[in-house]
Amino acid sequence: MRLAAAATRAAAGPRALGAACVGRRIAVPPLSLRWYSAGGELARADIQERIFQVLQDFDKVKQDKISPVADFAKDLGLDSLDTVEVVMAIEEEFSVEIPDDEADKITTVKEAIDYISARKDAH
């Protein structure tokens, strides 16, 4: 789709293509600019949004109970095996590996956000 659009714009001439690229950059920031910026720490709001997304992708989560303070077991309805899987999905989302003793302590959305916020290598 995007290639085809670019090709159409290229056919319209170099100026048109340049304008299209600038326009697109403003409208839809590439993920790399938002999340992988050099040296920048992740904004808490971004972390929360991405953790919510992980939870939304997990079938067993009670979707209407997702909140910044939700407890994986009490609110989201997850058992201990599910919780292991969710925490591992969060690991993959932020490209970090969480040691067992740390992962065991993450039982709420808030604890997950706090943990990722504290990990300077999360991205």
């Binding site: 292991v84 591992m88 993959e92 067992d100 065991d104």
Partner: peptide
Amino acid sequence: MTDALHLYRGILRAHRL
């Protein structure tokens, strides 16, 4: 119980490779 969860996590983690 914790040991079982650690084993479970370890296996899922090994599967990533």
